[in-house]
Design a binder for these strands. Structure first.
Length: 580
RNA sequence: GCGCCCAUAGCUCAGCAGGAUAGAGCGUCAGAUUCCUAAUCUGAAGGCCACAGGUUCGAAUCCUGUUGGGCGCACCA
């Protein structure tokens, strides 16, 4: 696994060396912090290939004005054979122009790294546990789960590419009241499968048809043994069978999206192992859990409210609005009580935790962060913990809202959507918005997507490259890096954009924003299509020309652009197709 | 009442830990097809970056307040 310094990093080092030299000469005070110095490609390509703000940031400490300092920096940089220009511009930017051979070298670097191009070792040695989806095991995945699933999965891939050791984890809530309801619902379907006429599914139970096969399976396994038996005889058994069946279904749904978790952690097992009790004991020992009474909730009318003494976690000490119960009055763990123990369990095998949650759980972020902070103390080490919220997705069909309600059993399932529009469209669409903003997902638009959908645009670029290679092969030509000096400015412009991939990956991983990769790929595809189109107007600019050596160099370029597209799409979990 | 998220072109959205004239797609208008796939491309019009203050050399970006929208506020998960 190569972690060759990026072109960008190489020049950042040059700037740094120039500043160090100025320090030696006394032009800068010794030990001047350079953390605010940046080096990035300017928005406007006319400003060169890279620009640094060094002079502006450091002018004050150098006791001079930005332009004067810039001149000194430029002086240090002059004579570098890899630079063809260093100009001072605007308020004190230094614009660098890189010699063409830099880009040729970078093109060769892409070829050498292949699927590893863009990979970094920044996160080496860091074990990150990322928990996402964690939908309740009471039914199939619906579209409400989809965004978090895709964002979490792409983020996991991104962090992995950034060198982290990533665990993809799913928390199975198989211990609460909901799975009891599930078991009872399954029992109704079981009786139905035995020939009983059950009619309407009783209120409060899950009415969905997806439980019919489960009822049949239970009937086949147990015959009529539990048909008339009291609940106590079958509830646990049916719950176990039902959860297992639902999880099979959910795993299958996730597989449709290409998502595979490494760990499915069971809440019931967690409780059997005594983890919540252990956490409570430790917290009580540190006066972080006490028996207290909650105030009645504000802004909501509850006719059956009564004050009860419960074991409360002092989350207010960590900025929460209220202390939170970890057990119910019946002695069972609350969701939160189990969840805080679960986070400690995750932390046992990780240096860092990430949760991906739906925005409807935003209200519980503070308490869980408080809990992890508190328990990290017991662990004797800090446990960086990040909860990423993904906002709601409004499902539309021709502009009309599609209602999702699990209670009615009438909801849009993930499987239906993937069936209708395809995995790649679902994933890419979910990743072309920043997750903290709400989004609309209109079937009508996404289905007729051929025109309007970025995913095809990107895939098309890749397909075009593939088809060009096929075509060239028929003429006995293939990519060859032997004459890359034949490449001109239009080709090098593509390389410049491709060369930003490692930087984009690093930034996206650091910010934990996989959507940046989607937008980058769109830009790269656009640049490639633009290049292609130049060949329409001027045949001399086509990839395949009369000139064999030039053709081979351009094929080499095309292959590397395709490689970057593939690497990026791989991070998003989207197929890089050979043809459309 | 309180907490979290959001507000950028007619519509859907970017804007990279403040940086040089604010970007893309769709839609609108004007063009390109003897072409390696036109599922593409070129150009034009279109903005008080919700509003008001503040921070500094410099703010769509950071801070405060206001307005508007979303989510949440149980011993549910």
């Amino acid at each position: 696994m190569a972690d060759t310094p990026t072109l960008y990093a190489a020049f950042a080092a040059r700037i740094d060396a120039a500043l160090a030299a100025l320090e030696m000469e006394g032009a800068l005070p010794p030990g001047t912090p350079r953390t605010n110095v940046s080096l990035e490609p300017p928005r406007d390509p006319a400003h060169g290939d890279l620009a640094t703000n060094a002079a502006m940031v450091l002018a004050k400490q150098a006791k001079t004005n930005p332009r004067a300092l810039a001149e000194k920096i430029v002086e240090k940089l002059s004579g570098d054979p890899l630079l063809t220009g260093a100009e001072i511009a605007g308020p004190g930017f230094i614009n660098l122009r890189l010699a063409d051979r830099n880009w040729v070298t970078e093109l060769e670097a892409i070829a050498a790294a292949g699927t590893d191009y863009g990979r970094s070792t920044k996160g080496a040695g860091r074990r990150v546990n990322i928990e996402y989806v964690s939908a309740n095991p009471t039914g199939p995945m619906h579209m409400g789960h989809c965004r978090g699933a895709v964002v979490g999965d792409a983020l996991a891939a991104l962090l992995e590419f950034g060198g982290h050791e990533v665990t993809r984890e799913y928390y199975v809530n198989d211990a609460g009241a909901q799975v009891q309801v599930l078991a009872r619902s399954a029992h109704v379907r079981y009786r139905e499968a035995l020939g009983e006429v059950v009619g309407e599914i009783p209120a409060g139970l899950y009415p969905g048809d997806y439980l019919v096969p489960l009822g049949q399976a239970l009937a086949a396994e147990f015959g009529d043994r539990y048909a008339a038996a009291p609940e106590a005889e079958w509830l646990d058994l049916f719950r176990e069978r039902s959860v297992a069946a639902m999880m099979d279904m959910i795993r299958a749904d996730l597989a449709l999206l290409g998502i595979h978790h490494a760990v499915f952690a069971s809440e019931a097992e967690l409780q059997r192992a005594g983890k919540p009790a252990a956490a409570e004991a430790w917290l009580r020992g540190h006066d972080l859990v006490f028996d207290g009474v909650l105030e009645a909730p504000k802004g909501k009318v509850l006719e059956d409210w009564e004050a009860v003494e419960l074991p409360l976690f002092r989350s207010t000490r960590f900025g929460d609005d209220q202390d939170r119960p970890i057990r119910k009055s019946d002695g069972n763990w609350t969701y939160f009580g189990a969840d805080l123990a679960y986070h400690m369990q995750k932390a046992e095998g990780a240096d860092e935790l990430i949760d991906i949650w739906g925005a409807d759980h935003a209200g519980t972020v503070k308490r869980i962060k408080a809990a992890v902070e508190a328990l990290a103390e017991g662990e004797g080490r800090p446990i960086p913990f990040d909860v990423k919220l993904v906002q709601m997705v409004a499902l539309l069909r021709d502009g009309e809202p599609v209602k999702m309600s699990k209670r009615s059993g009438n909801f849009v399932t993930l499987a239906e959507v993937v069936e209708e529009v395809g995995k790649d469209v679902v994933r890419f669409t979910m990743l072309t918005r920043k997750p903290e903003a709400q989004m609309e997902f209109d079937f009508a638009k996404v289905v007729e997507a051929s025109k309007d959908n970025p995913v095809f645009y990107v895939q098309y670029a890749h397909a075009r490259i593939s088809s060009t290679l096929r075509k060239a092969k028929e003429q006995g030509l293939g990519p060859d890096g032997g004459a890359l000096d034949r490449l001109g400015q239009p080709e090098l412009a593509l390389v410049k954009l491709a060369a930003q991939f490692p930087r984009e990956v690093e930034a996206a991983a650091q910010a934990r924003e996989p959507h940046r990769i989607a937008f980058y790929l769109y830009d790269l595809a656009a640049a490639f299509h633009a290049f292609w189109n130049m060949g329409n107007d001027d045949p001399a600019l086509r990839i395949i020309t009369e000139d064999a050596a030039l053709t081979q160099a351009r094929l080499f370029l095309a292959v590397q652009i395709g490689q970057v597209v593939r690497n990026g799409l791989a991070l998003l979990g989207v197929e890089a197709v050979e043809e459309l």
